[in-house]
Computed example of a mutant assay.
Amino acid sequence: MSANSSESSIGIDCVCIQIDAGRAHEPLLNTITLYNDNNKRYLVISNANKPGVFNVSVVLPTIIRKDNRKPLSLLDNIKFELVLDTVKGDLRRYLGLDDDSLLVVKKAEINSNIAVKKGVPIESIMELLSLANLRVSDAETLALQVRGVPLTKGNVVKRRAINSIKTKSSVKSNRFGSKLYDKSRELGIEGKQIFRLELCYNARGVKTALSKKKVLLKDLLTPNTIQLFINTYVDDTANYIFNPLSDYLNDLTDLIVESLCKGKGIYQTFLLWKEYIPDYAIFRKCVRRYYKRNGYTANSADTEASRTKKHAIDDGIIVNQGAISVLQCLSSRIKEQKKISTQC
């Protein structure tokens, strides 16, 4: 799971800008989409619902890189001016506008990545996060799982292959939504797995993070401003992603140990709970706690847990392991970025 500092840095991906050029400004005949030299989209200009108002979507990293595998981070600070000048030049060319005060940021996507080693399916990470934070309705729309709801079949994600999890801002917070997904699959990267944790801040979220009533693009593209966004992202991922995950794992462990104490047997208990265990490390921990409670050693517990795992695999059950350690590693790296940002 190793990754260099640039791969694990927190940064900005896409921003949405709204420009009010005045009712007299002519609308666009067609939506304008611009691509970089690697044929990756970096800017889209379209008419808004009001006369003279335009929506501009900018994928900031693809202005300076071949794609947006890595977000625009503090490590790119010497290129912030280039990014701003590129956007301003395109708007001057296609809209005839050259006024920084018109480039109002309405949305911003902040993310971080982690490289995942082979043998740990990203789908298992998605499934674990789904169980901890979300449930899937019949329409396959995601909503926040209410804390304290009993673990029932109705609350479990039944599909093993989950490509991405998206929530709207109203689900998690009135400031942001989230998108958790396999970035390597999106970019068509072979031989490497990249998991991305992205928070999509709306207008309220942008203004709250930066303590401003109006945020301009030129204000956003400064080291100090991105540091503020990093701090907000660190706190929000802890409160809305990692803390609920920790709560889920603690509750699940207690429930499984309680089930083991009822004497149905190790393997039968695993079968009862396997839909809630996308990482076998969960069940191994439960067996250890159960064995300790009954006076047995950790080595004995591990031997029994390994025997149970082999039994399950022999029965054709998919048994994954590693999702928890990946998320723990990502959580630690994100927390470290807040320390870095406050020291810069």
Rank of each mutant, 00 (worst) to 15 (best):
P121D: 09
N36A: 05
P27E: 08
I122H: 06
N55C: 10
L187C: 09
K117D: 13
K66N: 04
E190D: 07
R135A: 04
G205S: 05
D98F: 03
P150W: 07
L199P: 04
F283Y: 15
R23V: 11
T237R: 01
K212I: 07
T31N: 14
Y240Q: 00
Y94S: 03
M126D: 02
S178I: 11
N113H: 09
R93C: 10
S178H: 05
S331H: 12
L144G: 10
G263E: 11
S57M: 08
A301Q: 04
L129D: 05
I241D: 00
D254L: 06
T222G: 13
V105S: 03
D13H: 06
S8T: 14
P61G: 05
L330E: 07
T141L: 12
A132T: 03
V59D: 12
V319T: 02
R41L: 11
H311Y: 13
K310A: 15
K335I: 07
F176M: 13
I12Q: 04
F270C: 08
Y240L: 00
L187F: 07
N113D: 07
Y280S: 12
R147Q: 11
L327M: 11
I78A: 10
G295I: 09
D254A: 10
L134V: 09
L97E: 02
V44A: 06
S341F: 07
L60D: 01
D76Y: 08
E81D: 14
Y290A: 02
S184I: 08
L131W: 03
A298L: 09
A161C: 03
I313M: 15
Y280I: 09
V257Q: 11
K212T: 10
L228G: 15
D219P: 01
K158G: 05
V87D: 02
T208C: 01
G191E: 10
G191V: 06
T297C: 07
D251A: 14
A281F: 12
L142S: 08
I226S: 01
V58I: 04
R23T: 08
L82I: 02
G89L: 04
K118G: 07
S46E: 11
L43Y: 00
V136T: 10
L75N: 13
G263M: 12
K70W: 12
V87P: 00
D76S: 04
L134D: 00
A132C: 11
I19L: 11
D85R: 05
L217P: 01
V136M: 13
Y181K: 11
V56C: 02
A143H: 05
S5K: 14
V287T: 08
R135C: 08
A143C: 05
A108R: 00
A238I: 01
S184L: 11
V287R: 04
N133H: 01
K183M: 10
